Amino acid sequence: MTMIQLLTLLLAQSIALNLGCLSGIIAGLAGSSTGQAILIGGGTVGGAMTLFLTAVGVYG
């Protein structure tokens, strides 16, 4: 991996983690239980990373 690819991957992971935390917090504040909020946050992280890796596969 080149340095640009590595930095792009780290940026994508950071963004996905931030999105997951935010969606988990929003779900918790909306009344979901802790377990449901964790699953919602994890699903968001998985979805964001899937979109990123798909884009890398298509354009890379």
Score class of each variant (00 low, 15 high):
Leu17Asn: 07
Val45Pro: 00
Ile40Cys: 13
Gln13Lys: 05
Thr2His: 09
Asn18His: 04
Ile38Thr: 05
Gly46Ala: 10
Leu22Lys: 13
Ile38Val: 07
Thr50Pro: 10
Ser33Asp: 02
Gly20Asn: 02
Gly43Val: 04
Met1Pro: 13
Gly46Thr: 07
Gly31Val: 13
Ala30Thr: 02
Gly41Asp: 11
Ile4Cys: 05
Thr44Lys: 07
Thr50Cys: 08
Gly42Gln: 12
Leu17Arg: 15
Met3Asp: 08
Ala37Asp: 11
Gln5Thr: 05
Leu10Ser: 12
Thr2Gln: 06
Gly31Met: 04
Thr50Glu: 09
Leu22Pro: 06
Gly46Gln: 03
Leu11Val: 13
Leu6Asn: 14
Gly42Lys: 06
Gly47Arg: 12
Val56His: 01
Ile40Lys: 07
Thr50Phe: 12
Thr8Asn: 08
Gly24Glu: 03
Leu29Pro: 12
Gln13Asn: 08
Thr54Pro: 01
Gly60Asn: 11
Ile40Leu: 10
Ser32Ala: 08
Ser32Glu: 03
Ala48Gly: 04
Ser14His: 04
Thr8Ser: 12
Leu39Met: 15
Ile26Glu: 01
Ala55Gly: 15
Ala27Gly: 04
Ala12Pro: 08
Leu10Met: 12
Ala30Tyr: 00
Leu51Ser: 07
Cys21Ala: 07
Leu17Pro: 00
Ala37Val: 10
Thr54Cys: 06
Ala48Pro: 00
Val56Lys: 03
Thr8Ile: 14
Ile38Lys: 14
Thr44Cys: 09
Gly20Tyr: 02
Ser33Glu: 00
Thr54Tyr: 11
Ile4Trp: 15
Met1Glu: 09
Cys21Leu: 09
Ala27Asp: 01
Leu9Cys: 08
Met3Lys: 13
Gly43Gln: 12
Ala37Ile: 15
Val58Gln: 06
Phe52Asn: 03
Ala55Gln: 08
Gly41Glu: 12
Val58Ser: 06
Leu53Gly: 07
Ile15Pro: 00
Gly60Gln: 15
Gln5Pro: 03
Met1His: 08
Val58Asp: 06
Leu53Tyr: 15
Val45Arg: 04
Phe52Arg: 04
Ile38Arg: 06
Leu22Thr: 13
Ser32Gln: 03
Thr8Arg: 12
Met3Gly: 01
Phe52Asp: 02
Ile25Val: 04
Gly31Glu: 03
Ile26Pro: 00
Thr2Ile: 03
Gly31Lys: 03
Ala27Glu: 00
Ile26Val: 02
Gln5Met: 06
Thr54Leu: 13
Met3Pro: 01
Gln13Phe: 05
Met1Phe: 10
Leu53Asp: 09
Leu17Thr: 07
Gln36Met: 01
Val56Ala: 03
Gly24Met: 02
Ala16Leu: 14
Gly20Gln: 01
Leu53Val: 15
Gln36Pro: 00
Gly24Cys: 00
Tyr59Thr: 09
Gly20Lys: 02
Met3Thr: 11
Ile40Asp: 15
Leu17His: 14
Val45His: 02
Thr8Ala: 14
Met3Trp: 11
Gly60Leu: 09
Ile40Ala: 07
Gln13Asp: 05
Ser33Thr: 02
Ala55Leu: 14
Ile25Glu: 02
Phe52Glu: 03
Ala37Lys: 10
Ile38Ser: 03
Leu11His: 11
Leu51Pro: 02
Phe52His: 14
Leu51Met: 10
Ile15Leu: 07
Ala55His: 05
Leu17Cys: 05
Gln13Val: 08
Ala27Leu: 00
Ala27Thr: 01
Val56Cys: 04
Gly42Val: 04
Ile40Glu: 13
Ala12Asp: 10
Ala12Trp: 00
Leu39Trp: 11
Gly60Arg: 14
Ala12Thr: 03
Gln13Ser: 05
Ser14Thr: 09
Ile4Thr: 10
